[in-house]
Design a binder for these strands. Structure first.
Length: 550
RNA sequence: GCCCCUAUAGCUCAGGGGAUAGAGCGUCGCUCUCCGGAGGCGAAAGCGCAGGUUCGAAUCCUGCUAGGGGCGCCA
């Protein structure tokens, strides 16, 4: 019996009771959870506390009516009332153990759901400017965004991973001038970019050009460096992401919005809707109509488009491509942008928070031995995605970045990670998975197979704990999708790994040397594999490998 | 001044209004005669402060304090 089954049973029993013993009331969600202490039984529910008031009873009275009725439900061995009105349920032997086989049978499908089936979602993340390598902040988004995409897909969503490529605007001009200066062995412009990567790209542009770029007129030279430099930077970024295990479905070029006239069309649309006005020689969006704290300039008085102009067109483009949900993942330094984006969404007649959702992630703080490490592109001491991967590897880097809530600032100590010790919990989880494989291999060589399965034999405390933990997986993945919080999966896997290790220390799958292979060994092999399935599926949702040996 | 995020163990972080607040790392002790000890067991150690809502608050609300970030016709 799973928690979901139990919830249904409780709901059914309550409805039956409402025909007589209980005053009818509206029944909402039935929460069934694992009691923190094993002495309290297999599962606990707080329905008595939740609904006693509605039924005109005290929690204990409510529980005393419900508990005896639950007693007769098939699969339930014992029902107790505890504390202020908790109802603790103990299942019949084997009812929990049977789950092991169910999990193995489900395999890759275990942990998947269909809560988001039919929903077309656009997940935009990273979207770092093509003026330098991806730094640590973008790396956090790469890890979280890709993992979230996997989690949403596992709930049936049709997810498109998208990268908005800002190849339009002043920062690109600065980038081009910086390359040109580097090629001429001149110092970087005051407002430009510097660092080893600028020199490298400048050299690559020079080497790849058919003509002598440095002898061209200034404007032409700059344009040549812009075009080739952006292309090279873009390619470098794409490869870094790929090596990080993140492949985008769409790289959307901001510049294309201007070239196609999409920006002008978006503004025209807003004008038709009456949300545009002219003032001080500029064109404005009256975003205050929709809760923004001030109106926003869309076309500057010099005729150039403001940054938001591209976003208007871009959002409209996403909607026209059929995305029901457009999710933007931005750094905390862009939080001030949220209100105007939501206003824009509303101005188009869409529903903010539904059609457009903006996730704000706090910044990652890099430290070395407690001292902050600056991560400015301009300083040239960039800690990039590649740097991090080089130091700790893809798995550890992704895991470290995805195991915390995006609402939390994250301190990552490079000195700590450089030690390559087990400071990163990813090893703990991966080791548990490797161990399931090792155990299975040993079992196989000793003739333990899966020809028998007697779930009631899985009755050791550590087995009950492990089973209960494994059953939670689908609920954890569903919740991770609902709240868009991949870190829940990581934290859960750490608990699974702990339960598995404890089980391993207590319950052998293979007999001691000279011992007979018995039913319990074969049955435990099922549980071993069930644990492997959950660890494997879970790590898969995080984009972290599940090695067979370490 | 206004807005967003945060404050939980020595450190980095979990904790969907519920029972004795957890994990990893670090510290101390125990555990190698058997599936890999990258493991297990035990110990010390914690909810920033003050109110409020609730049968019940780390969790929700208000105020305060502290830290991070943001408030352009920059992108």
């Amino acid at each position: 019996m799973t928690p979901a089954n139990l919830s249904e049973s409780i709901a059914r029993v309550l409805r039956e009771l409402m025909d007589g013993s209980l005053a009818p009331f509206e029944l909402g969600e039935i929460v069934v959870e694992r009691p923190k202490s094993r002495e309290h039984g297999d599962w606990a529910t707080n329905v008595a506390m939740q609904y006693a008031g509605k039924a005109g009873l005290k929690p204990r009275e409510f529980a005393e009516i419900l508990a005896p009725a639950l007693q007769s439900v098939e699969g339930i061995a014992k029902v107790d009332i505890a504390g202020p009105g908790f109802i603790n349920v103990t299942l019949e032997a084997g009812a929990a153990g049977a789950i092991a086989k169910d999990i193995v049978t489900a395999g890759d499908a275990f942990g998947k759901g269909n809560a988001l089936t039919g929903l077309k979602m656009n997940l935009e993340f990273v979207s770092a400017n093509p003026t330098g390598p991806i730094h640590i902040g973008g790396t956090r988004w790469a890890a979280v965004g890709d993992s979230l995409a996997r989690i949403l897909q596992a709930q049936g969503a049709d997810v498109t991973r998208e990268y908005y490529f800002n190849d339009h605007g002043a920062q690109i001009d600065r980038f081009a001038r910086s390359l040109l200066a580097a090629a001429r062995k001149q110092p970087a412009p005051e407002d430009g970019y510097a660092g080893a990567y600028i020199d490298q790209i400048a050299a690559q542009v020079l080497a790849g050009a058919a003509e002598d770029l440095l002898s061209l007129p200034e404007a032409e030279a700059q344009e040549a460096f812009r075009a080739a430099g952006v292309e090279l930077m873009f390619e470098e970024i794409r490869i870094s992401l790929h090596d990080f295990g993140v492949d985008f479905d769409v790289f959307f070029h901001e510049n294309s919005l201007y070239e196609s006239g999409a920006v002008n069309r978006a503004i025209a649309r807003l004008r038709e809707l009456g949300h545009i006005f002219e003032e001080d020689g500029a064109t404005w969006l009256r975003s205050t109509t929709f809760g923004d704290d001030r109106d926003r300039v869309i076309i500057k008085s010099d005729g150039e488009a403001a940054y938001i102009a591209g976003d208007l067109a871009y959002y409209l483009d996403k909607r026209s491509r059929g995305f029901d949900r457009c999710i933007y993942m931005l750094g905390a330094d862009h939080h001030g942008y949220v209100q105007r984006m939501m206003a824009m969404c509303a101005a188009f007649g869409d529903e903010p928070g539904v059609n457009l959702e903006i996730m704000i992630g706090q910044l990652v703080n890099l430290v070395r031995d407690g001292e902050p490490v600056r991560m400015s592109k301009r300083a040239g001491t960039v800690v990039t995605m590649e740097d991090l991967v080089e130091i700790v590897g893809v798995d550890a880097a992704r895991y470290a970045l995805v195991r915390s809530s995006i609402n939390s600032m994250l301190d990552i100590d490079l000195a700590l990670l450089e030690k390559k010790t087990n400071d990163n919990p990813v090893f703990y989880v991966q080791y548990a998975h490797a161990r399931t494989k090792q155990v299975a291999a040993n079992a196989s060589s000793l003739g333990v197979d899966t020809s028998e399965f007697q779930p009631e034999l899985l009755n050791h405390a550590s087995e009950e704990e492990l089973l209960a933990k494994l059953i939670e997986f689908p609920r954890v993945t569903a919740m991770a999708a609902e709240f868009k919080e991949p870190h829940r999966v990581a934290r859960y896997l750490e608990e699974v790994a702990g339960s598995y290790h404890r089980w391993y220390d207590n319950c052998r799958v293979t007999p001691l040397s000279g011992g007979e292979v018995e039913t319990i060994h074969r049955t435990r092999l099922w549980l071993n594999e069930a644990a492997g399935v959950v660890l494997r599926n879970g790590l898969g949702l995080l984009g972290v490998s599940a090695p067979e040996r370490m």
